[in-house]
Structures are given as structure tokens and as C-alpha cells.
Design a protein around this nucleic acid. Structure first.
Lengths: 205, 205
DNA sequence: TCAGACCGGTACTCGCGAGTACCAATGCGT
DNA sequence: ACGCATTGGTACTCGCGAGTACCGGTCTGA
């Protein structure tokens, strides 16, 4: 250790550096998100990512061990935030029906709003590699399990859910929403609100 | 034209050649199916496909203009057969409920039976390229539209379907079944029949 | 002010695989 | 039976991009 004054200076320098590094990391992540979403994983080179972020390859490999690691990180952070958003919104509902409706609606709307993240989560991350698959399953699984849990409680007093398998229901909702979103995102003129309403009528009538 | 006899000989020779070619094509398609399913598209090289089929690259490029073309072809043929199977089985039902149940059940069971085809249709073909996406959408769309059509008729006299949007319902079923199958295919110990039954309870109660 | 550590950028290597060109063997018609 | 055409196999090219090594500039600390 040095003198207190030096320590303070050192700390603030380290802190600035930390902030700087974090800022760069964010730039890389957001560039990666954008390019992966619009071109796809295979068609996006590390060179393109760093060029878009106006950085060098060495900066990239300071933060990520490989291109795939970068993709996983993007998926985890952005996908995680999206799902978190959905879950907190859903939690505001006062009963099972309302929570399911809020969750499904928020998911659909969020996918339309952040279509780049949605594309990553629903399309680009499928079938890349086992580890990427794990991340996707984990992220989407959080939503699926929340739905399942809701059903597990609802089935006790709601005839509609009485005969449903919670786990299957959760996965079915996730799959249905994904498919609907990906289909209607490519079909122009689709409206998030009405799509969400149609889905709610199926799963939370 | 030559003499009749020569013509006959020529025809039979041509026919044999045709048959031979078709046989080779089948070998290539089935090798491609197997490898694409177990390793994925990117990880499967043309070299590996022809080695597995005990042929040469030139034979491959006689039938397909590119690796992607080959993939599309496999997807179209095998996926098409699977969907056809589902649709004809479903058509045996005597009312909307029964047809929906038969269709969903057959789809799930067929995916478990032909897990290689299922993997291609549900996982590997996602997000590869625009043209592959078109093929997948077309194939799965046949099922989605059949479901939608069934709903469109059922809603006239069945309260359950009265408020559903047929197009969205069709897509939702496809997505839900895909997700459920892909999830429970990787989770060992899953049973096709009971999974199908759970899904039927959701979409055709 | 100066020496050194460290950061970032550039330029390189290396492997891989799609697609191609050329050659050998087989089978066809005459 | 013989020569020619066609088929099928092999060996090559070519481009691309992930990951790396090294070097020049800058900022820190004494």
C-alpha cells in the first residue's frame, strides 16, 4: 500500500479505468446486438462488430473469450432484461388471470418494441450450439416457469386450468408467443396489441 | 430417332440411368438429413455428406446447386411428408375436436418417431437464411392453416372457439407444439403420448 | 521531467470448407 | 470388338474470418 493520498488517486484512476472499460463493453454489446439481429450470427464477423463499435479486435478479446461468448453475453443481458420487464409487469396483476394476461401482453409488446432483442431470443439463438441453447432455454424458461407456477395455483379454483399440466402449459405459452411474434413481425401491418389480445383469449380466457 | 428396337433399348437405358440417379439422390438426401440433424447445418460439410453417402462431390453438385439448396430440398421433402402424414391422419376425425386432437397428437408422436426430421424442422432450419425460412414457414404453415380452417368452422357452433382468431390460433398451436417437442425431446424420459394429451387439453378441451 | 508499464491498434497466420477443373474408367452405340 | 462420350472421383484453388503477436503511443507514478 502507498500513502493515503496516493491510494485515493490510485483508486479514482482505477475507478475511471473501470468505468471506461465498462463503457466500451457496453458499446461492444450494443453493436453486437444490432449486427447479430440484422445479419444473423454466422454472417456477422468479429471484424464487423468492432468496426461498428469503432474499436479494435484486442478490445473485443479483452471482454470476450470468443465470438460465441459475446453472443451468449448479449443474449443473457438483453434477453434477461426483457424477461425481467415482463415478469415485473405481470406481477402487478391482482389475480391469476390478470397476471397471465399482463405477462403475455407485455411479452408480445416488448418483442415488437425491442425487435432486435426479440430476433436474437426467438430466431438467431436457435440451434447455434449447445451452450447458446442453454442460455436461451434458461432465459425463456424463467417466463415459462412463471406461467407454470401461475397455472399451478389457478388450477385449484379455476375450472379452465384444472386439467392442465403446468409445465407443458408454460412451455406451450412460450412457444406460441414466440411463433406468433416471429410470424407477425415479418408480416407487415401486424398490431402488437391485437395479437396479444388474441393470444390472451387462447391462454387466459 | 432410330429404329424402334434401338429406341426401346435407348429408352430402357435412359430409364435405368434415371433410376440410378434417383437412387443416388435418395442416398444423398438421407445422409444429409442424418448429418444435418445430428451436427447442425454449419458443422456439416459437403465433404462429410458425400463421405457418408459413399460418393463424390461431383455427384453432389449434379443434384444440388449448393449446400443450402440441398438443405432446402431435405427440409421440403422430409418435412412435407411429415406434415402430409399429420394432415391425412387428422382428416380421419369426424368433427372439429377430433380432427384437432388427432392432428396435434399425430404431430407430436411423429416428431418423436422421426426425431431427425423434427430436429431439422424445429431447430436447425431456424434463422439460417431467408430462403430456408420460407421453406420452413411454408411447411409448418400448411399445418397452421389447417388448424386455422378447423377453428374457423368450429367457432360457429362451439363456444370455446367462438372468440378465437383462427390465424393466430393456428400459429399458436404450431409454436406451442414445436416448443414442447423440442423441450421434451432434450429432457429424457418424456412420453410422446402424455405430452400430446396435455397439449390437446389446452387447444381442444 | 523522465522512465516504464500498459493499453489499444494493426497486420499476420492458420485452418477450413465450398465450389471447380481436370483426369480416368466405364459403358454405350456402331 | 473398338472408339467415343459421359460419368464420377480426386486434387486443387480461393476466399474468408477467428484468433494472435507484436509494436507504437500514451498515461502513470516518482
Amino acid at each position: 500500500m502507498s500513502t493515503p493520498a496516493a491510494a485515493v488517486r490510485a483508486t479514482s484512476a482505477a475507478a475511471r479505468k473501470e468505468a471506461r472499460l465498462e463503457h466500451r463493453r457496453q458499446r461492444l454489446l450494443s453493436s453486437a446486438l444490432e449486427l447479430f439481429a440484422e445479419r444473423g450470427y454466422e454472417e456477422t464477423s468479429v471484424g464487423a462488430i468492432v468496426a461498428h463499435a469503432r474499436m479494435s479486435k484486442s478490445a473485443f478479446y479483452e471482454h470476450f473469450t470468443s465470438k460465441e461468448h459475446c453472443f451468449r453475453e448479449v443474449l443473457m443481458v438483453e434477453g434477461g432484461e426483457l424477461i425481467q420487464d415482463v415478469l415485473t409487469t405481470a406481477a402487478r396483476g391482482h389475480n391469476h388471470h390478470e397476471r397471465l394476461r399482463l405477462g403475455i401482453t407485455r411479452f408480445v409488446v416488448a418483442c415488437f418494441e425491442r425487435s432486435t432483442v426479440a430476433r436474437l431470443l426467438i430466431v438467431e439463438s436457435v440451434g447455434l450450439s449447445a451452450s447458446v441453447d442453454r442460455v436461451r432455454h434458461e432465459v425463456q424458461g424463467r417466463f415459462a416457469e412463471a406461467v407454470g407456477e401461475e397455472v399451478r395455483h389457478a388450477m385449484l379454483h379455476d375450472a379452465f386450468y384444472a386439467d392442465k399440466d403446468p409445465a407443458v402449459f408454460g412451455r406451450a405459452v412460450v412457444g406460441a408467443v414466440n411463433e406468433a411474434v416471429s410470424y407477425f413481425l415479418t408480416h407487415p401491418g401486424a398490431d402488437a396489441e391485437s395479437l396479444a389480445a388474441s393470444l390472451c383469449r387462447i391462454f387466459a380466457p
